[in-house]
Design a protein around this nucleic acid. Structure first.
Lengths: 213, 213
DNA sequence: TAGATTGTTAATCGATTAACAATC
DNA sequence: TAGATTGTTAATCGATTAACAATC
């Protein structure tokens, strides 16, 4: 069985939790060298058994009787989530949300690097965000091709989202991270992750009003 | 059976999809008066059967042989998600992400109204975002009590998140929407929704590199 | 050895899908 | 009536949990 084979068919909710585990682990103080399934699960808010079952999909991350080694865990989860090699991203739409994403420091720690920023607004074009120049949207396609970018972030308003998405895909992007409220559609060989902010707050409203005693 | 009773015990993934349905529906052009389960499911990217099963948890939203009425759907989903009455929010942390959330226009459409904005940085205090003054964090507790705010949004850096969360809960907040990478902990009678941005992009990285052909 | 801990299987629980009846 | 559509049950599928063996 190839290395790659064991990465296939991990349950989708397990992948999501892998990301949460990794995020938790990298934020741990350096002095913490090992951690048990129950400590970790407790803080994240799940059952220890679920965490161990998750790790079991990959053949187990530890040894019976011993806690998990934090550095090993971080390294292995990064491998599973394909974060070992740097991956470049472009971002379109420099509104408030686009600026916030472009300024977010957290991605580089996972080898995700924002390379190009694009907007249609001439007032924005020419400015820089963290030393990355904002370019005209017309240049996006050729930039993506030239730099072989595979990840595109959409922060445009609703009405522009599908068009920008199409341009990204046309130019070679294979993963779309969509922050607009629009449900963009893509070909089968492209993945989309919708990060619609309203969904989160509506879910919270339900839980606050309907689940709480 | 009381009106409220039928809102209890809706499967958690169904609630999340209710939010997605509602978001989709409010973005529809006004001329669209009715829509079928297969049209809607196709655009959202799920099976029509799942959508109908979701609606069935509430006793069904339509009638056999007829498409769904868009206005009725919007009204009913708003009811289920407890968005009928306006709900006030406070936000702490006016970094890039905090500013983006404070400027986001999309929430008001769901009756979610940002009332108070707070930060520790004296350079920020006194400024206004969309006519809402930024106040000193020290004033947050009494503001929450005075205005009986039940929803708190955390956009602070990692190290301040738990402290800010505690202050919010202490003052009476019952729902925390947390955008910091920290896993904040709350008492049992408070709900938290973590909106960690890194989790989304890590999941996308997995799907791009491990699931795509 | 005793206690703590993870690995692993099997049981349970919940979510999704298929099928078709009911209705327009 | 025929075709389109949703309502609803039952079957399937997948995710979570419990239990305990294995190991340190």
């Amino acid at each position: 069985m190839s290395e790659d084979a064991i990465f296939r068919n991990i349950p989708q909710f397990t992948v999501l939790r892998f990301a949460r585990y990794l995020n938790f682990l990298v934020n741990l103080p350096d002095v913490v060298e090992e951690i048990s399934s129950s400590e970790m699960a407790g803080i994240i808010g799940i059952k220890p058994t679920q965490l161990r079952q998750d790790f079991f999909t990959l053949g187990g991350f530890g040894r019976q009787g011993k806690k998990y080694n934090v550095r090993f865990l971080i390294q292995r989860l990064g491998e599973v989530l394909a974060l070992q090699q740097p991956q470049d991203m472009v971002l379109a739409g420099v509104g408030h949300l686009g600026q916030a994403i472009a300024n977010y420091q957290g991605f580089e720690r996972f080898n995700l690097v924002l390379k190009g920023i694009f907007d249609v607004n001439p007032k924005m074009v020419g400015l820089s965000i963290r030393d990355i120049p904002v370019r005209d949207l017309d240049e996006m396609g050729s930039y993506i091709q030239q730099h072989k970018i595979r990840i595109g972030v959409i922060c445009t308003p609703h009405h522009a989202a599908q068009n920008v998405c199409d341009q990204m895909v046309e130019a070679g992007v294979r993963a779309i991270w969509n922050f607009s409220p629009e449900n963009v559609t893509v070909p089968e060989d492209v993945v989309v992750q919708n990060e619609n902010l309203s969904v989160g707050i509506m879910n919270l409203s339900y839980r606050l009003n309907r689940e709480l005693p």
